[in-house]
Each structure stands twice: as structure tokens, then as C-alpha cells.
Design a protein around this nucleic acid. Sequence first.
DNA 1: CCGGATATTAGACAAAGTCCAGATTGCCGT
DNA 2: ACGGCAATCTGGACTTTGTCTAATATCCGG
Lengths: 139, 139
Amino acid sequence: MTRMHYTRDNMAGLLRSHEINPTHQRIEIAHALFSRQEHLSADQVMAIVNTRHSETSKATVYNTLKLFLEKGLVREVIVDPSKVFFDPNTSPHHHLYEVDSGKLSDIDAEHVQISGLPPLPAGMVTEGIDLIVRVRRKA
Amino acid sequence: MTRMHYTRDNMAGLLRSHEINPTHQRIEIAHALFSRQEHLSADQVMAIVNTRHSETSKATVYNTLKLFLEKGLVREVIVDPSKVFFDPNTSPHHHLYEVDSGKLSDIDAEHVQISGLPPLPAGMVTEGIDLIVRVRRKA
DNA sequence: CCGGATATTAGACAAAGTCCAGATTGCCGT
DNA sequence: ACGGCAATCTGGACTTTGTCTAATATCCGG
């Protein structure tokens, strides 16, 4: 896989390819997520985008993240009851969550196999399977 | 497995067997969870316990649920970013979450097999593996 | 350069959960 | 029964995450 540079210019193309109108704020938010390739919460995104001086409002950060989600640009990771994380990696993968530090990392789905799941209830389709391995520092 | 009656009297014994002092409020909360055998959120527990007239404060409900959690009487299920569910079933199992209705049901772990997980980071122990199948009503 | 659609904003609001200081309860030994 | 101590419970203020709204700003085609 070719490593790609997540410049702000490239972000515009990325957004367009997902049918998202590339505005200044959206580019900044996408850049925050993709240049780091990390799991960020909404308030972390806020903090990053507004480091120099306040540029983007809370409402826009939330609106934009929801938009990215709908357009399939990012994924939502629900592991912490107090906040949602957004994951710029949309390829199939699972998560490792360090309970005490709150650190969240990816587990490639390629070698993981899940079998024996019961059939779905009638009229239902799978939207996704989340596998979360919760770990703790050994006592 | 013998079916058991979750009477309030039996709750006292259950609590004691988990090193929890059985008070009136704790018995009511345990009864709410175990007699239904359902996943309840804190505010659902509140509503159930206070149906007739207000008996138990919000603080106590939260304190008690946290206590039950620490003592291993219930499990936490994190699927909805807006609220935590408490699960009286502590035997190993997974979850099926109907995204649009919010309905949450159990998947017996007995026949499900997960293989190929990478080794844990050094000095870490698994606290639990959560598998959540998210489903949606077919369009 | 006009007008409509799209995006952004500040700030009020809502809901889940935490915290604290004071009141209650239960229980012990006497 | 009684005083006292520890454990528990309580109302209410507070925090945090996230939503909503009405007003403003920006963009773009003609």
C-alpha cells in the first residue's frame, strides 16, 4: 500500500470523492483526523482545529463529524461511555482498548475470524460487527 | 439450568453472596434488573424503582449500579453513545443491537468462536471481549 | 452583482452522570 | 433502652457531551 501524504490540498479531493463540499472548516477537520491517523473525540478535534485562534465552532465540529460519518469517510467507535471516538480508518478492523489509560488502537481484521454467529432476526441486515478487546495493565 | 425465582427475599441472599450489604434500595434495584432479565439503563432503573412514589434518589441508583458492577453482579454494555446499559447476565455472551429501535438482546457465546486475535501488548491482561452485532431493518 | 442554496456561528438548551455535605439508618456494646 | 459510630442515602448543584435554533456569512450560477 502506497503511503499517502495527507496535505490539506489532498483533503479537498478526498472530501469531493465522498460527495462532500470541501469548505475551509471541513478540510481542517479532515486534516486533523487523517494526518494523525488516530482515534479522536469531538472535543479533541475541536482543540486541534482551534489551536492557534478560534476558527471553528462547536456546532460545526459536530455537524461535520456527523456528515463524515454519513458519507462513510470516518467510522464511529463506541468504547467509552462518556465520549464517542471517530476513526479515519474505514477498512474492516477491530479495536483494542486499554481501560485505564483510555488508549485505543486498531486490530487488523484480516486474520481474525468470527464463526458460529446465529442467524439474524428476519428482515434485518448487518450494519457492522464491532469487536472490542478490553485490556488492563497486569496487577 | 434450574430456573430461579427472583423474589425480593432471594435478592438479599444474592447480594450477600457478592459481599454487598443488602439494603432496601439495593434490593429494589437488584429486583428491577434480575426479575426482568433485561438490559436497563440507569434512568430506566430509576423509573422502575420509583413507580409508586419516589423512593430512591438518582445518586443512589448510580452509586448502586456502580457497586454492582465492581462486585461482578452485573455487566456494563456500551453500545449507545448516549447511555450505558446494565446487564444482569454475567455469563459469557455477546450482543445484538438493533440500531433504529435501540433494542438490545443476548447472543450466547457458547457456539461463537473468535480466532486469530493478535497477542496482547506486554504486561496487559484481557478484561473482556465485547462482540456487538449491529443490525438494521432491511430497507 | 443578485438571489438562493449551502455552511457556519454563538449561545441556549438537554440529558447523563458526578459530587458533596448533611440527614438517616442500622447495629454494636453497655 | 441508649449513645455512638460506620455505612448508606439524599437533594441539589455542578460538569460534560452533544443538540438545536435563529441569525449571519459564504459560495456559485446566471
